[in-house]
Design a protein around this nucleic acid. Structure first.
Length: 456
RNA sequence: GGGCGUGUACCCAAGUGGCCAACGGGGGCAGACUGUAAAUCUGCUGGCAAUGCCUACGCAGGUUCGAAUCCUGCCGCGCCCA
């Protein structure tokens, strides 16, 4: 991209991506001249799964905007911190993961960052793994060099810790209690070794981010004044600010909420993921398309790179003809393209159009083939259709559209199942006469759950 | 290590010997209305060969004709003490 760099803070502000900042004016000055002084910002990601969820897209977008502003983003995979587990936002102690699992997850998550940055027309971001430095840290060294700078009094005031401390059902282990120290060390390490001066993260990360900034300041103070190291870290607040203190910045993104109070990023099938193996392009396209009206503009700002003017135009269009859902289509298209590319976004849109037009039976064969790639499908032996045919009740379970026979019967009784676009009766059995193009049967449960079957 | 509590379905939560597959709320799913939205109304929400059977109230035993409910042990969690 050769466009002029955007103003990072201003961009975050109008998009609603700015929640808290340790020092907005200071950061604005710090980032003022990307040409001469490109700055480095990092955000950390937990390798608790082989993919990231849509909630993680928020800090990723923040990194994208940082890059668009002409600065250099750094992605830090929590290969080391993941071995401990962040208690932030967690109501229960986590089970520890094996190092092999974590390493595999880190590897899988890389692709997401590469995809999003490519989708934004940006070069690949640099990616680091904090296991590289955290694993080398010895326990005694950590206690002496880092632990001294942390006051337990302060640590137990931290929201995520306090919650667990007062929660009757769940306590917190020493391991997770120590998490904050590790993340703070990350920032200090990256500051020292790589000149990273800004940390971005979700609002639940505020405590960890500030702890990092504090650590950097205190380590610096220790170096300048050896006496400081002998004092209790808890009294650090009483010491006057030291001149020429290394200036680092923390910035958090808001937690994305839905206007109906529901949890963002959850669907009937669970969390929405950022890799196609877990959430197909079609599924994520549908997720965005089904955004409730109240949230549509907010999400356009958060999850697309459309300009302010473009979004305002969509807002006007939506206000005028809400039923047309132009804004929804724009969100679905751009947000899907960001992750999976333009071609996939177009395919997902075409598949949706084909399926929801209700005219499945009239679709040309080649279009059906494309739809196949986008939604769940399965292959079955054609011989099963001969004779008595295939019992729908059991078949719905087989393809995953119903969880049990009881449920399958209920769906059929409610006439919420359709075959090739036509309501199915409870008595219906699948036979060769149901085949489209002599090989396909399209099943639909409710409004949105589709499954295509191929018989050969 | 000791004392006192607590553990019910996806979540919260009632039930403290038979009326319990378990009240109520939330969530979820489906139907109607719509725009694949929201709101609203209705139904469903352990499984099955289904006027019955099986599995389930932290786990394992026991008492009883009969247990989510009583007893014993264990495990998890919380509070207090050490």
């Amino acid at each position: 991209m050769t466009t002029t760099p955007i103003d990072f803070l201003e961009e975050l502000r109008w998009r609603g991506l700015l929640h808290q900042c340790t020092d907005e004016q200071g950061l604005a000055a710090h980032l003022a001249d990307p040409g001469a002084n490109p700055r480095r910002a990092y955000a950390g990601f937990d390798p608790t799964a082989d993919s990231l969820t849509i909630g993680n897209l928020v800090p990723i977008m923040a990194l994208v905007h940082f890059a668009r502003a002409g600065h250099k983003p750094l992605v830090v995979m929590g290969g080391g911190t993941g071995m401990i587990g962040d208690p932030s936002g967690k109501s229960a102690e986590r089970t520890l993961m094996t190092t092999e699992t974590i390493a595999a997850n880190v590897a899988r998550q890389r692709g997401i960052f590469e995809a999003v940055f490519a989708g934004a027309g940006l070069p690949e971001p640099e990616i680091a793994n904090n296991a590289d430095w955290l694993c080398k840290l010895s326990y005694l060294d950590a206690l002496r060099d880092i632990g001294k700078h942390f006051s337990v009094n302060m640590m137990i005031q931290k929201e995520s810790v306090k919650e667990r401390l007062h929660n009757r059902e769940q306590g917190i282990s020493y391991t997770e209690f120590s998490y904050m120290i590790l993340q703070a060390y990350d920032f200090a390490h990256l500051f020292r070794k790589q000149g990273v001066t800004v940390q971005l993260g979700g609002s639940d990360q505020w405590g960890n981010i500030v702890a990092g900034s504090d650590l950097i300041r205190r380590q610096h103070a220790t170096q300048r004044d050896p006496r400081a190291s002998t004092g209790s870290a808890s009294t650090a607040d009483n010491t006057p600010p030291i001149p020429h203190t290394p200036h680092t910045f923390g910035l958090t993104n808001p937690l994305v909420t839905k206007s109906d109070g529901g949890k963002f990023g959850k669907t009937e099938t669970g969390a929405v993921w950022l890799t196609r193996e877990r959430t197909s392009p079609y599924a994520i396209y549908q997720f965005w398309l089904n955004t409730t009206d109240e949230d549509i503009i907010k999400f356009l700002k958060l999850f697309t790179l459309l300009t302010k003017d473009e979004i305002e135009a969509l807002e006007a269009a939506h206000a005028e003809r809400p039923g047309a859902r132009e804004a929804h289509r724009a969100l679905a298209h751009h947000a899907t393209a960001l992750l999976h590319g333009e071609a996939e976004a177009v395919n997902a849109a075409n598949a949706a159009k084909a399926l929801f037009s209700g005219q499945i039976a009239d679709l040309p064969k080649d279009l059906l083939a494309e739809v196949f790639a986008e939604i769940p499908s399965s292959d079955h032996p054609r011989t099963a259709l001969e004779g008595n045919g295939v019992c729908l009740t059991e078949f719905l379970i087989e393809v995953g559209l119903a969880k049990s026979k009881r449920e399958a019967r209920e769906f059929l009784a409610n006439s919420s199942v359709s075959i090739n676009g036509h309501r199915a009766t409870p008595e219906h059995t699948l036979t060769p006469t149901d085949l489209l193009h002599d090989e396909i049967i399209a099943l639909r449960r409710g409004k949105k759950a589709w499954h295509l079957t191929r018989w050969s």
